[in-house]
Design a protein around this nucleic acid. Structure first.
Lengths: 161, 161
DNA sequence: ATTCGTGCAAATAGTTTGCAGCAGA
DNA sequence: TCTGCTGCAAACTATTTGCACGAAT
């Protein structure tokens, strides 16, 4: 069920990560590469227990420490919901794939969804207006849709359990 | 600096809160009234330490317990960011004042901003498309603008400190 | 070599909970 | 009255950190 991740990291992505690590005076160690590889393979943000389960060579304390460092240099992004664990995903600047989140209020799973251009434009317009009015300088935004995921609503409708 | 909140709760609001408490078999106690009063007086979501500081009669453990209960019956809403404390505000259904959040990544303060109609429409259109595609059933959404608040950027530009 | 990263175990801190007395209906 | 609420202190648990050893440059 758990194993060690192989060299499944795209060369270009790997280079950009190495560059950002270098700027922050962080070495490109096996542990950090394993973390990033697990996240790159995933299609949704993962919790630290999930990450460690995906790769036996990862210790939880180092995962916490490294993900904190990786976030500081802009390689990963931390998502905190009201679920018990925080979740991590590769930073958008690396995957250049801007997206928003579908958060299931029942099971806590977070899924990625593509951002539509019209939604993006609306958010940016709103942000500009707000900045002018209040002096707030926006760095990024997040749009979360909170509800019940397909899995949970399927499970609820079948009389199971 | 700290005190006890007076009867500063609008009658209509008070009634609606009492109704929701009743539906959940929760009594309208002094402590719960104090919590709600502090939140109603605030113009932004507050942390539990902030709430307790605003009213000496509130014990932290009861505040946690009551805010959890108040959230369950839809009187308050909990906002969790990556700051150290969670924040609470009155539920939107009570204030009928839909808004989004400006989150300062430097000091953690969260401010409310009015939601613009065009932004709302864009979010709802996006949600409908996603629901059709993936079976996710949206209950609510949140739009957060993350950046540097006016206070923090003012403090940074003046050479102070 | 020398500095930084790692894993383990112990510490920290926000939040939750058990319990005995008090208050709301 | 009688059940539910309160405050205190103790328990929980996600996350952080000290330390001694191993690895990256």
């Amino acid at each position: 069920m758990s194993r060690r991740s192989p060299h499944t990291l795209d060369g270009d992505l790997r280079d950009r990560i190495a560059a950002r690590l270098g700027e922050g005076d962080l070495r490109f160690t096996r542990g950090r590469e394993a973390l990033v590889t697990v996240l790159a393979l995933a299609t949704r943000p993962l919790t630290i227990p999930e990450i460690c389960a995906a790769d036996d060579s990862l210790a939880a304390s180092s995962a916490y420490r490294n993900l904190t460092g990786l976030e500081a240099v802009g390689v990963v992004h931390r998502i905190v919901t009201d679920a018990e664990f925080a979740r991590y995903e590769l930073a958008e600047g690396l995957t250049d794939h801007h997206h928003h989140h579908l958060i299931c209020s029942r099971c806590g799973v977070v899924d990625d969804v593509e951002a539509s251009p019209s939604l993006e434009r609306a958010v940016h317009d709103a942000a500009r207006a707000i900045a002018r009015r209040s002096g707030f300088r926006m760095e990024r935004h997040s749009v979360d849709l909170i509800g019940i995921c397909a899995n949970c609503s399927r499970r609820a409708s079948s009389s199971a359990r």
